[in-house]
Design a binder for these strands. Structure first.
Length: 204
DNA sequence: CAGTTGATCCAA
DNA sequence: TGGATCAACTGC
């Protein structure tokens, strides 16, 4: 069952925590690839020096962030990897949550092919299947083609994981500083990264 | 550990 | 228009 669109709207830190444990699904050629979210980072709009939209910077790339919540903000980093974010704030406020890691769920063979070009992968490769923002996009085949898609779409969306099977039954949620934002001055230390403590698919 | 890689951004 | 920068990842 899909979440309603207003589930993505709210204080971005709350949304970042709320996403943990739920299922991200991408339907590729009619087949589902999915994983449970185990790590997120919040990027809080104009006041956050780590955010692409810091200072209200509004360009072709960041335009999606100024739109309504529950849509996909995707960008290319280091010329080779994609990162997937969900917009969280009302129209006009450019905030979002970066999905940093998943526990593989459905379509694992397709994800293995996308990542390593084969379906029989080693234990080590399995551990690396979706344990980082670039890795999970490669595995789920998320590219710029999905930019701007609504989480109400039938292609890319989130599903509710019930309490009984939710990862929070087995793991504690922890906060810490965000990764890879050394340029962000005072924002470097903000504890806006959220993850399940000790979960094997959290990025390192 | 260094090399990769190209879109994006802003200063000229 | 050019050069710096970058919400990573890979393979030595």
């Amino acid at each position: 069952m899909k979440w309603p669109i207003n589930w993505y709207e709210g204080d971005t830190l709350d949304v970042a925590k709320r996403l943990l444990g739920h299922r991200l699904v991408h339907v590729v050629d009619g087949k589902r690839r999915s994983g449970l979210i185990v790590e997120t980072e919040a990027y809080k709009g104009p006041d956050d020096k780590a955010a692409h939209s810091y200072g209200g910077r509004r360009t072709e790339r960041t335009e999606i962030m100024f739109g309504p919540p529950g849509h996909a903000y995707i960008y290319l980093i280091y010329g080779m990897y994609h990162c997937f974010n969900i917009i969280t704030a009302p129209e006009g406020t450019p905030q979002g949550v970066l999905i940093r890691a998943l526990e593989p769920d459905e379509g694992i063979e397709d994800m293995a092919s996308a990542r390593f070009g084969k379906t029989d992968i080693t234990k080590q490769q399995y551990k690396n299947l979706t344990s980082g923002p670039g890795k999970l996009c490669r595995a789920l085949a998320i590219t710029m083609e999905q930019k701007g898609l609504s989480m109400q779409s039938d292609e890319l969306f989130m599903e509710i994981v019930p309490d009984e099977t939710h990862l929070s039954q087995r793991y504690e949620i922890t906060a810490g500083p965000r990764i890879g934002i050394d340029y962000a001055e005072e924002a470097v230390h903000y504890p806006w990264r959220f993850y399940f403590q000790g979960h094997p698919f959290v990025s390192k």
